[in-house]
């Protein structure tokens, strides 16, 4: 397998902005892959710890030979990376509890270190809540304002985005929103609501946030959690 860029794109799609450090640590990913290959990390055991319903883990197990020994297409490698990222995300998010974390820590220590450092960089707690801001809007306003405010926008490279189905695209977009909602972030509207176009991702984002209890601020510039 030599399509490392497709693997990285798939990983990036899954891990998004919370585990960006992971993408800068290829050795940590290689550790994990080698640990699975050598049997040091058993997918069966990890599956039991994470719960039998974790589809990405099944995907990794079923497609291991195809991707690492066979002659996979770019899309297959991308899908593999996306599923691998979902598993890492699940472990990082605490799914499987201490058992899963311990397994990963023992078999892939460098990966565990990256995951721990991510927790340290972005601890979730009351002191951080007031500082969380996200920008949503149409292109190019959300990119421009995000740069201005120094916040990371929802962003996926063209290659990865085009390989996703509309359902997967919205799922990725929704994940970006869910992470921010969990931190009670406020969403600055770089495009005012009256300029919002029907049927767009921006409209979907606004409706999703409103369905989660967000309201338009009195000056109309942002969506804020009710009661804040």
């Amino acid at each position: 397998m030599c399509q490392w860029d497709d693997l990285a794109l798939g990983l990036k799609t899954s891990v998004g902005d919370t585990l960006q450090d992971l993408l800068n640590s290829p050795q940590a990913i290689l550790d994990l892959i080698r640990a699975i290959e050598s049997g040091q990390l058993s997918l069966k055991d990890l599956g039991q710890a994470l719960g039998s319903g974790l589809e990405p883990l099944k995907y990794i197990a079923q497609n291991w030979n195809r991707v690492w020994i066979g002659n996979p297409t770019d899309l297959e490698v991308y899908e593999y990376g996306r599923n691998l990222g979902s598993v890492i995300q699940a472990v990082a998010g605490g799914a499987g509890g201490a058992a899963a974390a311990k397994m990963v820590s023992k078999a892939a220590p460098r990966l565990a270190k990256v995951l721990r450092s991510t927790e340290n960089v972005a601890p979730e707690g009351p002191s951080n809540l007031a500082k969380e801001t996200r920008v949503i809007a149409h292109h190019p306003e959300y990119i421009n304002l995000s740069k201005e405010l120094g916040v990371r926008p929802f962003d996926i490279p063209t290659n990865a985005w085009n390989k996703m189905t509309p359902t997967e695209q919205w799922a990725a977009n929704q994940k970006f929103l869910d992470r921010a909602i969990a931190k009670e972030a406020e969403f600055v509207l770089a495009t005012p609501l009256k300029e919002m176009r029907k049927g767009t991702f921006f409209e979907k984002e606004v409706k999703y946030l409103m369905s989660k209890g967000y309201k338009l601020s009195s000056d109309g510039s942002k969506l804020i959690k009710q009661g804040r």
């Binding site: 149409h138 292109h139 190019p140 990119i143 962003d155 490279p157 063209t158 985005w161 085009n162 991702f201």
Partner: peptide, 27 residues
């Protein structure tokens, strides 16, 4: 913008008339 979903802005102008812009956002 290759790095941002393949988004684009294309703007056209015409002397003494209105402007036109095409936007592509997330496909």
């Amino acid at each position: 913008s290759e790095e941002h979903f393949g988004n684009f802005v294309i703007e056209l102008v015409k002397r003494d008339s209105f402007k036109v812009r095409f936007i592509r956002d997330r496909g």
